[in-house]
Design a protein around this nucleic acid. Structure first.
Ligand SMILES: [Zn+2]
Ligand SMILES: [Zn+2]
Ligand SMILES: [Zn+2]
Ligand SMILES: [Zn+2]
Lengths: 136, 136
DNA sequence: GCTATGTGTGTTATAACATAACACAAGCAG
DNA sequence: CTGCTTGTGTTATGTTATAACACACATAGC
């Protein structure tokens, strides 16, 4: 058994999370809405409210530079984790999540020296992924 | 004289840049539009087109997590610089730009080990600034 | 039982952010 | 002059996100 208890998801939250997991990549709120119309979703708020909770739970991350959302890449992510970073391929749209521990410790040094209380961090790298380079 | 030649700004670009410089903080494109109505601006595109160029020149940075734009904090910034990071206070809206050299070198190590060609980087820290803490 | 409170939901409408498409003007290279 | 590039002005539209209101359900306190 996992050391972390899974959050109890409501029906809408579970549907939104499943859409993101199945997609295997980022989706906009409106793309999720279209995927879930057959499940009774009719309005953006139904998606945004579920996303708000999933982000709060740490099961979904928001990609600020894409205005999109992605399921956390950690298997059965239920409790969230430290800061996440994302490498976003401009060619194929692939998104790789990783944990930038060393970069975060450097950024934290800056915030501490400045007396800035850090709440959350956005780190997004735009570029070209390995596949898209070798494929030329 | 400066070692860097200043970009020749068009009238619209100069007006937009001046608005951002005078503001001393981030502005949305529509806020800039409102500021420049008396100067003949009538439509968002006039602002966005100027902003595109100013960002390209490196004189203005886009804050992804705010959908806003801010003048580069470097005095008479004319040629751009390496990656920038921003500490954004959630209380007062203050934005501090800094150069996260150490964090960038760590992130570059990751991209190189993954074969990811890095094009540009977004680093935005959300939290509470020193002033807002001491002021409680 | 029956309130009060909190959370989730459904719906309509609207706000906020960004781009498409077209026409025209000015500068400059061939 | 012609063709090209860059900037501009305008109208319309597309995309992302929230406001406001009504209702359903569960649960805690009396
Ligand atoms: Zn994650
Ligand atoms: Zn790729
Ligand atoms: Zn700068
Ligand atoms: Zn502050």
């Amino acid at each position: 058994m996992s050391a972390h208890a899974h959050h109890e998801l409501t029906k809408n939250q579970a549907l939104v999370f499943q859409s993101l997991s199945d997609a295997g990549g980022p989706l906009t709120a409106y793309a999720i809405l279209d995927l879930l119309r057959d499940n009774g979703f009719r309005a953006p708020l139904q998606v945004y409210r579920a996303l708000d909770k999933l982000v709060e739970f740490g099961m979904v991350h928001r990609l600020e530079s894409l205005n999109a959302f992605v399921a956390c890449s950690h298997k059965d992510c239920a409790g969230g984790h430290g800061a996440a970073a994302f490498a976003i391929c401009e060619k194929c749209g692939d998104v790789r999540e990783f944990t930038p521990d060393e970069a975060m410790s450097s950024l934290k040094k800056w915030t501490e020296s400045e007396g800035f209380i850090l709440d959350r961090t956005t780190i997004e790298l735009r570029g070209t992924c390995k596949n898209c380079i070798t494929a030329n």
